[in-house]
């Protein structure tokens, strides 16, 4: 059962191919990590899958529905790279607003809000304006708003950027809990070390998936002891077959 399936998914900006015939398959209920350097196409892939960008060609299905399709929006949770919160509103007002966009009642919102604020450790900041919070706290509010409607599939674009190591560990615990409840989680990150927590990872480079697999198996296959070296291994093979690239190969 696939949660996401793309076939030759391409996104062009003029002559630049942000996604180049991407073939991606994410199994329902797994945590899938999209890894790669800046400009590899991770964020573009996610934005196309959540319907924010128009694909140039190819096909993409999310939860068996061809996208773009607004019908699946209520089953999707999207946390963008930027904090993207209403900073003139309090934490509670933000959560209530996002809850209402998904048609939740006040009671449903109140229950879920209490649970999520406890999880992100912001119970005492509920009535504080978001603009008064630190960067890390804003990120935690952002995650809480993404989870308010208990989505079936989560697209998290660099969710742990600016989050301290202790809280980052908590985030991963929570992602695993979501997975246990059947939620599919797709995470982009350039923290290669934390990507070990994923069930499977896909390495992206120049809009393409250059390798994919279970983290431990990838490291075993490449004879490395970390995912960063594994990525470099595949990137070097790619460069050898592509010829030299203008930026020296990605990063």
């Amino acid at each position: 059962m696939l949660a996401v399936k793309t076939d030759k998914l391409t996104k062009n900006y003029g002559d630049f191919k942000a996604l180049d015939e991407l073939e991606l398959q994410v199994i329902k209920g797994e945590i899938y990590g999209l890894l790669g350097p800046n400009g590899a196409g991770k964020t573009t892939a996610i934005k196309v899958l959540v319907g924010l960008l128009k694909k140039t060609s190819g096909t993409a299905q999310v939860l068996d529905i061809e996208i773009p399709n607004k019908q699946i929006a209520s089953d999707i949770g999207f946390m963008p790279q930027e904090t993207a919160m209403y900073i003139g509103l309090t934490v509670h007002q933000n959560m209530e607003f996002f809850g209402k966009l998904f048609g939740m009642t006040k009671e449903q919102i109140a229950i879920k809000e209490a649970e999520l604020l406890k999880f992100v450790d912001l119970e005492d900041w509920k009535d504080e304006l978001v603009q008064n919070l630190s960067g890390g706290m804003k990120h935690r509010v952002s995650l809480a708003c993404t989870l308010i409607h208990e989505p079936d599939i989560l697209f998290l674009d660099e969710p742990t950027v600016g989050v301290d190591p202790k809280l980052r560990a908590n985030f991963w615990k929570y992602f695993n809990k979501l997975k246990e409840n059947g939620t599919t989680v797709i995470i982009t990150t350039h923290y290669m070390d934390e990507a070990r927590n994923c069930d499977r990872v896909g390495f992206m480079r120049q809009g393409k998936l250059i390798a994919e697999g279970i983290p431990n198996e990838i490291m075993k296959d490449t004879g490395t002891d970390n995912l960063e070296d594994a990525f470099l291994h595949y990137a070097t093979i790619g460069e050898a077959s592509d010829g030299p690239t203008p930026d020296g190969g990605g990063e």
């Binding site: 934005k47 607004k70 929006a73 209520s74 790279q81 993207a84 996002f98 966009l101 048609g103």
Partner: peptide, 14 residues
């Protein structure tokens, strides 16, 4: 600029 527009457009909001 802040990304809130993209964020809400990824919800059922039209």
């Amino acid at each position: 600029v802040s990304g809130t527009l993209s964020r809400v457009l990824a919800t059922p909001l039209r």
